[in-house]
C-alpha cells in the first residue's frame, strides 16, 4: 500500500495528467473510485464466503446423515458435552460479533481510539472463545473421547461409569456395535469445532494485523473496506457456531 497522501496524489495528477487520476492513497488505481473499490472487494468477499458455506456444508451434511444412521450413538455422545460451556461460548462469540460491528462503525465515524478499543475487545473475546474450547477439548481428552488418539467406548457400554452424565440423562447401555459408532459422533464433533476454531485462529491473527494498522490510523481516514470485509469473515464464523451449538449440544437432550 502506498503511503503517499491525498495531497501528494493531487500534486502528482497535475504532472501525470489523465493517465494517473487523483485518488486517495488507499484506493488502488485500477479502480475508478473508492466506492467502486468497496463494491468490488465486498462482492469478492461474499464469493469467498460462499465457498466457505460449501466447505462447512459438507461437514453439516455428513453430520445430518451420520446422525440419522447412528442416532442412539449420536444422542449419547452428545450427552457428554457441557451445555454450560457451549452456551457461554455462544454468548462470547455473539458479543465478539457485536464489538466487531462496532469496530466497523468506529472506522466509518473515523474514531481511531474507539476503533482500536473495539478491535482489541474482539481480539480478547476471540481468544476467550478458544480458551473455553480448549477447556472442553481437555475434558474430552481426559474422558477418552478423542477419536483415533485416545478413545474408549466404555462410557457408552456402561453409562454408569460417568456418574454426572448418568445422573442427568439415565442413558441405557448401547450395544457393542452401536457404542463403537459414538466415535463417529466425536470425530464429527472434533472436525467441525476444530475447523471452526481454525477459522477463529486465522481471524485472530488477521485481527492482530488490523489492530497494528488501526493504531497507525490506516482505517480512520476513509478506508473502511478492509475492516468491513474482515468483519464479514468474523460474522460468518459466528454464524457457523450459531448452527454448531444447537446441533452438537442441544438437540439430543431428549430422545
Amino acid at each position: 500500500m502506498s503511503d503517499t497522501t491525498i495531497t501528494a496524489n493531487r500534486a502528482a495528477t497535475e504532472t501525470e495528467s489523465a493517465h494517473h487520476p487523483a485518488h486517495p492513497s488507499f484506493q488502488r488505481h485500477h479502480f475508478e473510485s473508492v466506492s467502486q473499490q468497496f463494491d468490488a472487494t465486498n462482492f469478492a468477499m461474499w464469493l469467498f464466503l460462499l465457498t466457505e458455506i460449501m466447505f462447512f456444508g459438507g461437514l453439516f451434511t455428513s453430520y445430518l446423515i451420520m446422525r440419522n444412521w447412528y442416532y442412539p450413538a449420536f444422542v449419547e455422545g452428545s450427552h457428554h458435552l457441557s451445555i454450560f460451556w457451549g452456551t457461554t461460548n455462544t454468548a462470547v462469540l455473539i458479543t465478539s460479533s457485536f464489538t466487531m460491528a462496532m469496530s466497523v462503525y468506529s472506522a466509518q465515524m473515523k474514531q481511531k481510539g474507539k476503533l482500536v478499543m473495539y478491535l482489541v475487545l474482539t481480539f480478547i473475546l476471540g481468544l476467550a472463545f478458544l480458551c473455553i474450547k480448549g477447556i472442553e477439548w481437555h475434558g474430552e481428552w481426559v474422558d477418552h473421547h478423542v477419536p483415533g488418539l485416545r478413545f474408549s467406548d466404555a462410557d457408552f457400554l456402561n453409562p454408569k461409569l460417568d456418574a454426572d452424565v448418568y445422573k442427568e440423562y439415565h442413558d441405557a447401555p448401547l450395544s457393542p456395535e452401536m457404542a463403537q459408532n459414538t466415535e463417529e459422533y466425536f470425530f464429527l464433533y472434533f472436525a467441525m469445532t476444530g475447523m471452526h476454531a481454525l477459522h477463529m485462529i486465522v481471524g485472530i491473527g488477521l485481527l492482530g494485523f488490523i489492530i497494528f494498522r488501526a493504531r497507525q490510523g490506516a482505517y480512520t481516514s476513509g478506508h473502511v473496506t478492509f475492516v468491513e470485509n474482515f468483519g464479514l469473515y468474523w460474522h460468518f464464523v459466528d454464524v457457523i457456531w450459531i448452527f454448531l451449538y444447537p446441533l452438537l449440544y442441544l438437540i439430543s437432550r431428549h430422545t
Binding site: 487520476p21 487523483a22 485518488h23 473510485s33 462503525y105 465515524m109 473496506t225
Partner: peptide, 17 residues
Amino acid sequence: QPRPDETPGEHIHIVSP
C-alpha cells in the same frame, strides 16, 4: 475522474450503534 475527496461514507449506509 473520481473526486479525490470522495469517502466511502458517502455511499455506504452507516448502521447506527
